[in-house]
Design a protein around this nucleic acid. Structure first.
Lengths: 167, 167
DNA sequence: CGCTTAGTTCGATAATTTCCGAACTAATCA
DNA sequence: TGATTAGTTCGGAAATTATCGAACTAAGCG
């Protein structure tokens, strides 16, 4: 496989990955392609100009997306002495980050289901003489126990990873 | 707690839940509020007109959203003899559905990471004389094993649920 | 000091999504 | 048979989002 073929494949992968990330992380097309590019660029980071020319986007677009991606913790940059450029990279520990996102998401899910259970319990109380207006609670209760279990498992997987990293 | 207070609380909850569902499931505002309404309506389903008046949306908007939500399997409807109206409800087994979505999502994640490993292995082969261009593979490998484990656990949780349901 | 590099900021435009209204259909009722 | 109910369809308006270009800043070079 030649270097040109690799370049071709990289371009194709940036497109495919870009589409996926766009949907998955709800990012603007260019923002998603920046992420895809950083995932596929192994070396010491990608510069602003590199992104502008690779993605054929304007400087302003790349600038704003780089800033929002940086401030939400998705990417980071390194600098080199005697070099004014920034070299953008993905934030390290993306796997841990992924797990953490799931964990916090599930925490808010728990809060929501609890609130729904409260509401429906009130409904059942107020309408207790009208069987046709009674609410089912088991779905939310099952979801809650499911979330508890899923959370526990993911927390454990995260711990395993942390131990592996600290060795 | 009076019935009016419950109605007030329901409206507030539809709004809150609606915002959450809108972001989470990438739905249009009215589509998300339809879902929220169906989640909060315990009785025998909600009619088209009920949704039009509750959500203060046009018939056409409600109609198109109901159709897309039905065809993607999020909602369903029941009918009653001698009653031309449709009574919309959430599809049963939403928890199983939730798990299934995670499982298929993780399957495509696996495919993607494998493809990235292939690409980066090729890079390392072609650039093997240039250490500064070597790609890291451990991140993708860790992610893959993580996905395997997560998939296994969720499959098991799903089985438990199915057994409980079939009892 | 003037020029280049490495960006940032902001108002305008382009693209996309969401929603609406008007006109329509198909079934039921009186 | 004409009116009412229960929606559907489609063209376009309104709102939102994404991108762009032009003008700007701030640091470093010669």
């Amino acid at each position: 496989m030649t270097r040109e073929e690799l370049e071709e494949e990289k371009k194709a992968l940036v497109e495919q990955l870009g589409v996926y990330i766009e949907k998955e992380d709800q990012l603007a097309p260019v923002a998603a392609r920046i992420m895809a590019t950083l995932i596929l660029t192994c070396k010491q980071g990608t510069t602003f100009d590199q992104l502008v020319s690779d993605l054929e986007a304007s400087k302003s677009t790349v600038s704003t997306h780089l800033n929002t991606l940086t401030s939400n913790g998705s990417i980071d940059y390194i600098t080199r002495p005697g070099d004014r450029k920034r070299y953008f990279i993905l934030t390290p520990n993306r796997l841990i980050q992924f797990i953490d996102e799931k964990l916090t998401k599930w925490e808010t899910d728990k809060v929501i289901h609890k609130r729904l259970i409260d509401y429906k319990t009130n409904v059942n109380e107020v309408y207790k003489e009208e069987p046709e207006n009674q609410c089912e609670l088991t779905f939310h209760q099952n979801f809650l126990t499911f979330l508890e279990e899923a959370t526990a498992v993911f927390a454990k997987l995260k711990n395993n990873l942390n131990e592996k990293n600290n060795q």
